[in-house]
């Protein structure tokens, strides 16, 4: 009797699991498939399979609708943002975690509580600040803002990774005559690599997907990142019937993140959970 009952429960529980799987996967697959359809097909059977695989939408989105430019912009902002963020967060996390100084706990708490405080209010002054620095409509300016906005998160994650490095390794390196700069660069940084990868991937996804600051700070179409370009294309597609192009654009912005997720699944999940618990 018991196995039968177990089997029945197992099957009953799988129904909601499978339904949710469909609810998640179906819209994503639908975007990818719609990108391969012509406009006529999208209208005739919006939810059907494409008749032939047609990559014209991608070519059109890439060149005529400037998605190629936005793709490059997103890569630049993401790359500069993540590297800058690491340059700021690794030394700070190390000093807070391993170099005793007065106010170390206070500083750590300031950064931690910044994770709880939303930046919405700060966007208006930030807009005028960037204007004053001539960094409005500037990819580098956007990357700096992104990098700084994630400093608390990165310090939080990196401090916990650096805290788990055995102190003896640093001490023996110092005995061998390595300066503290050398210890940070040659000992701590390589040993905290798992944490650094986690933080980089998490920030990278965040910067790649960010929309609102880019909307406010980037004003030329030539400077749009993918998020803003998608929104722009979405509003334009309704008048120009460029649905296929829109779906091609959405695919272009989705696929890289999906690939990264595939490769670094564990890092991402861990980083997200730890960030959320404290955030």
């Amino acid at each position: 009797m018991k196995p039968m009952r177990q089997f029945a429960i197992g099957s009953a529980l799988r129904i909601p699991l499978l339904l949710w799987t469909i609810a998640v996967i179906f819209p994503i697959v639908w975007v990818l498939l719609s990108a391969l359809k012509s406009n006529a097909e999208i209208f005739a059977s919006p939810w059907g399979l494409p008749q032939v695989f047609n990559f014209a939408n991608f070519a059109k989105a890439w060149s005529s609708y400037h998605i190629g430019q936005s793709f490059v912009n997103s890569i630049v902002v993401t790359a500069v943002g993540t590297v800058l963020n690491l340059a700021m967060a690794i030394p700070s996390a190390y000093a807070i975690e391993r170099v005793p100084f007065r106010g170390s706990a206070l500083l750590h708490n300031v950064y931690l509580s910044a994770m709880m405080i939303p930046m919405v209010l700060g966007w208006i002054p930030l807009f005028f600040l960037l204007m004053k620095f001539q960094m409005l409509n500037n990819l580098f300016g956007l990357a700096v803002v992104y990098a700084v906005s994630r400093v608390p998160f990165s310090i939080f994650i990196l401090a916990s990774f650096i805290g788990s490095i055995p102190k003896e390794l640093e001490e023996s390196a110092t005995m061998d005559g390595l300066s503290p700069y050398g210890v940070l660069l040659r000992i701590v940084t390589p040993l905290a690599m798992t944490g650094i990868v986690t933080v980089t991937i998490m920030n990278g996804i965040q910067f790649w997907n960010e929309y609102f600051m880019a909307l406010i700070f980037m004003q030329d179409q030539a400077k749009y990142t993918l998020g803003v370009a998608m929104d722009f294309l979405n509003k334009k597609a309704q008048y120009e019937n460029a649905w296929g192009v829109l779906f091609a654009g959405l695919s272009v912005s989705m696929i890289p993140v999906m690939l990264v997720y595939g490769f670094f699944q564990r890092h991402i999940v861990r980083g997200m959970i730890e960030g959320a618990v404290k955030g």
Partner: peptide, 12 residues
């Protein structure tokens, strides 16, 4: 699979 939407941009 259930985590997919968490890595997608709000715009998408």
């Amino acid at each position: 699979v259930f985590f997919f939407p968490n890595i997608m941009s709000v715009v998408v």
